Amino acid sequence: MAIDLPSGIPGQGRRRKMPERYKYSATSATEDQQYQSLDEYYRVRVFCVFLDTISQELQRRFKGGDNTTWGILNDFHCMTVQDNWKEPVNEEAFKSLQKLCQFYELEEVDKLRLELKIFYSSFPCLPQNTAATMLNLMKENNVQEILPLMLELLTIYATQPVTTATVERTFSKLKLVKTKLRSLSSEERLSDLLLLAVEKDITINNSEVISIFKEMGHRRVLL
């Protein structure tokens, strides 16, 4: 990212006196820790904290009381393990594939297994077995139409939400759209205005919009 790292460890030079009652607290223990290098500082204060936040968010959002969604995520992961689809096919991985097909109402589980075998035999040396990497590889080699079931499930797996940032941005946009002058807007109109505000990057064909509006009913003004 072309960001220059500081030459010294941040906050290591200045020390503040901690009150006696906070001496053995978790916060003070973290702040009093001495780091030997910049790598150690960013690994402890940034990298590990980031991984811990992601892990807690996944646990909170996906591991419900019956562990159903957490099990679905594990079933998705079996698709990205190359050794599962070598001959003989791993039985546990095949059972996970059956659960996925049942959950998403896909009846061709044998066809999906064949697609996975074809994919891994065609690309035996993958740099990283992740859903995003596999999807990019499929698009680069134009094999989406050959592996439709695999493409559908990998797309679902790659777009699983981890945080609520998108939802929070939508609520922030709602504060800008619903002003005092629009306080009496109907729910449908407010939803349409919010959709236009959130998805403003999507190009709109004006001619198509006019045609749809024209076909809605007779108007006094000709379009």
Rank of each mutant, 00 (worst) to 15 (best):
2 A>S: 11
4 D>V: 05
4 D>T: 08
7 S>N: 10
8 G>F: 12
8 G>I: 12
8 G>A: 14
8 G>T: 13
12 Q>L: 12
16 R>T: 11
16 R>N: 09
17 K>D: 11
17 K>F: 11
18 M>C: 13
18 M>A: 07
19 P>A: 10
21 R>G: 03
24 Y>A: 08
26 A>G: 03
27 T>C: 10
31 E>P: 02
32 D>G: 14
33 Q>P: 01
34 Q>V: 15
35 Y>M: 07
35 Y>P: 02
37 S>H: 02
38 L>P: 02
39 D>F: 09
39 D>Q: 14
41 Y>Q: 08
41 Y>R: 11
47 F>P: 02
49 V>D: 11
49 V>R: 14
49 V>T: 09
50 F>K: 11
55 S>A: 15
55 S>Y: 12
56 Q>V: 10
58 L>W: 08
58 L>T: 07
58 L>E: 12
61 R>H: 08
61 R>N: 07
63 K>G: 05
63 K>C: 14
65 G>T: 08
66 D>M: 05
68 T>R: 10
68 T>E: 12
68 T>N: 08
69 T>Q: 14
69 T>Y: 15
69 T>P: 02
71 G>E: 13
74 N>S: 09
78 C>R: 07
79 M>P: 00
82 Q>A: 13
82 Q>K: 15
85 W>A: 05
85 W>I: 04
87 E>S: 14
88 P>F: 13
92 E>N: 09
94 F>W: 12
94 F>A: 15
95 K>N: 15
95 K>C: 15
96 S>Q: 11
99 K>G: 06
100 L>M: 06
102 Q>F: 07
102 Q>Y: 03
104 Y>K: 07
104 Y>I: 01
106 L>R: 09
107 E>N: 13
107 E>P: 03
109 V>L: 09
109 V>R: 06
110 D>H: 12
113 R>S: 09
125 C>N: 14
127 P>G: 10
127 P>K: 15
128 Q>A: 15
128 Q>H: 13
128 Q>E: 14
131 A>F: 00
132 A>Y: 04
137 L>M: 06
140 E>L: 07
141 N>R: 10
142 N>D: 12
143 V>A: 00
143 V>W: 04
144 Q>I: 12
145 E>S: 11
146 I>M: 13
148 P>K: 09
149 L>N: 09
150 M>F: 08
153 L>F: 02
156 I>T: 04
157 Y>S: 12
158 A>P: 00
158 A>E: 07
160 Q>Y: 06
160 Q>K: 09
161 P>Y: 05
162 V>H: 05
164 T>Q: 09
165 A>F: 03
166 T>S: 13
166 T>H: 06
168 E>D: 00
168 E>F: 01
170 T>S: 08
171 F>C: 02
172 S>E: 01
172 S>D: 00
173 K>C: 09
175 K>N: 05
176 L>I: 04
177 V>I: 07
178 K>F: 01
180 K>P: 01
180 K>H: 02
181 L>W: 00
183 S>M: 10
183 S>W: 03
184 L>F: 05
189 R>A: 01
189 R>W: 00
190 L>S: 01
191 S>M: 06
191 S>Q: 07
192 D>K: 12
193 L>E: 00
195 L>G: 01
196 L>T: 05
201 D>Q: 10
202 I>D: 04
204 I>H: 05
205 N>P: 02
205 N>E: 08
207 S>M: 06
207 S>P: 00
209 V>Y: 03
211 S>C: 05
211 S>R: 07
211 S>K: 06
213 F>Y: 08
220 R>M: 10
223 L>S: 10
